[in-house]
Design a protein around this nucleic acid. Structure first.
Lengths: 187, 187
DNA sequence: GTCTATATCTTGATAGAC
DNA sequence: GTCTATCAAGATATAGAC
């Protein structure tokens, strides 16, 4: 089935990109992992740029769905914030993979304009969701000391991505947790 | 002179690594920029791994010197913290380059063990310096609300690297400043 | 120290058979 | 949809002349 191979390619490519960066994996790697020849990949994704755009589309949709799940499951600001941190924590895979965005940005000059726009859109989406969490946390008083939800959201997004990076450097989930000690203690 | 070419190569390589990632530049790029043939680069740096190790050594020493300058020039916790943020802000080059560590980590699996150890050492050095700043800021009461300097340091290092990343994504220094609004408002 | 010349491998991508 | 075969370009690296 076409869909199955395509999904398998996206799965393998996402893991490879998050583990080794955009310039760190090749069609040969994907072909080996999925069990087809590398020329066949071009049937599903004519160029590597097209593949990276599909990756960002799926990543954006997945994270958005996860955020919606969090909003459905938890009704306080602090619970939602802790759940979001936990979501990024699990995405680390014990320090072996980065957020897709994080891994792509270092190779910024190798990326297509289309994928750069998708990264911007992803960041805007996440910023909006995080700010809403701080808005709620300020209103329901479950997050201590919130005076500026917009500024908190910008800092938190940078912290989520930066904590992924430092944890990846040390290949240690403890490094991730340590970076969030200040924020979680306010919840 | 040998030293001049070597320094020129390190300068060009550092800029390339920070702008395009470790897998995003080649010896051909360096040769073009410095004005020698790519084979000649191997005289100075036999392998790309050796080059990256030399890059990290120099980067570590440079940042350490900059931190010492900050300690010599400013004597309050808040002033030193603001100066450190300013140091990273300038290193962004208007959103065009990342911290060398940040750009290397995404390509973690392409790196030599030696360079991975140097990244760890760099992070340990920076963590110590940042914690000392929060220690002082707690003591001299110039940074508001410091109760846990160790946790503050871990969060701040992740924030510095993450803010570089989000600012690079948007190619905008304002994104960097926005991520530090919360922290600078405590100074 | 830098050069030319070369070796060897990998890259993303295409053409055309099945 | 997947294959074989092939391509041109680019990568790191080495040998040996100057």
């Amino acid at each position: 089935m076409s869909t199955e191979t395509k999904t398998a390619l996206l799965d393998v490519a996402e893991h490879a990109a998050r583990a080794r960066g955009f310039d760190g994996f090749s069609y040969a790697d994907l072909a080996d992992a999925v069990g087809i020849r590398k020329a066949s990949i071009h049937y599903h994704f004519p160029t590597k740029a097209a593949l990276s755009e599909a990756l960002m589309d799926r990543y954006h949709a997945t994270l958005e769905t996860e955020c919606e799940k969090i909003e459905a499951e938890y009704d306080t600001g602090s619970a939602r914030l802790l759940a979001l941190i936990s979501l990024y924590r699990e995405a680390l895979n014990d320090g072996k993979t980065l957020c897709l965005c994080v891994s792509l940005i270092s190779s910024r000059e190798s990326l297509s304009n289309a994928v750069l726009e998708k990264i911007d859109a992803f960041h805007a989406m996440m910023l909006g969701r995080i700010q809403a969490i701080f808005d709620l946390g300020q209103e329901d008083k479950t997050i201590a000391g919130v005076t500026n939800p917009t500024a908190e959201a910008r800092a938190t997004l940078a912290l989520l991505e930066g904590a992924h990076l430092t944890a990846r450097a040390a290949e240690s989930i403890q490094t991730f947790d340590a970076a969030f000690e200040m924020l979680t203690s306010r919840c």
